[in-house]
Amino acid sequence: MDAVPQIVLNIVIAGGIYSLAALGFNVLYSTTRFFDLGYGAYALVGGYAVLCLYKWVGINLELSLLLGVLIAGLTGFLTEKIVYRALRARRASNTVLLIASLGVFTLGQAALAIFFSSQFQSLSRDIASQRLFSIESGVITATQLLILTAAFAVMGILVVVWRYTKFGRAVRAIADDEEVAQTVGIDSERVIGAVYFIGAAVGGIAGIAVGFDMGLQPLGMTILLEAVIAAVVGGIGNMYGSVLGGFLLALVENIGAWQFGGEWKFAFAFAVLILFLLYRPQGILPK
């Protein structure tokens, strides 16, 4: 079974990207407890911002990446302030927020398509400039390794911040009960704003990762749905859960593709989602 190491690596590679995507989505969920589909747009913004800065304006790579992530974060921050805050203020149901966030996603994606055209654009300049690492009989590139590292690094940072900092405690307090948190003196609006910035920024990282590894198109539905499924399956509200969910999703998709062909990948991913929604909606790992 010579192919096993490669399949495992394929899963690991895909899992890295899904984990990053799920982490950002999970961050957005952590205070306001609703699913922000606008996340798909924030991720795209990150990728396209880097495209703009790096390839069009000519800023160097490191700075472009940083600015891209910040711009993505800003998009999430502004969306929260402009759209979601008003809805939350009048206690709109999660479904209303979901639909509004769907509007954000649709709008954001279409705006990017208008501005950047629907053409497929590649972020990386060279196609064969990758260093390859061999593991057993499998291969992984430098970029993919970088993405994986980023996923774990982000996870680590988020876990530390959420658990050990005052900010993290404020986040959890707001999640439990926003009014009570406010009476204790937590400026919930600022914290929530910061959380949206962070979550969208992580989304931006994911979007940039996809842009480098595969290419950019104004089609964010795929990465958004992967993020949602991975976050929900792994355990929504739990950072480790997002990473677990990401790798699990990659596992299911690739095994499905292996057995039945790539065309059924998506169907399998959704079947898994539905199974979890029915039998364990909170996901694998508890909050």
Binding site: V83, A86, L87, A92, V96, L97, I99, A100, L102, G103, V104, F105, T106, L107, G108, Q109, A110, A111, A113, I114, S117, S118
Partner: peptide
């Protein structure tokens, strides 16, 4: 025509957002 399709998406994203905000 090259952006008409996307403009429709922009409008309909706006409808979802604005209606949820102001005319649920």
């Amino acid at each position: 025509a090259s952006i008409a399709g996307d403009m429709r998406q922009v409008f309909y994203g706006l409808i979802l957002i604005l209606f949820m905000l102001y005319l649920p």
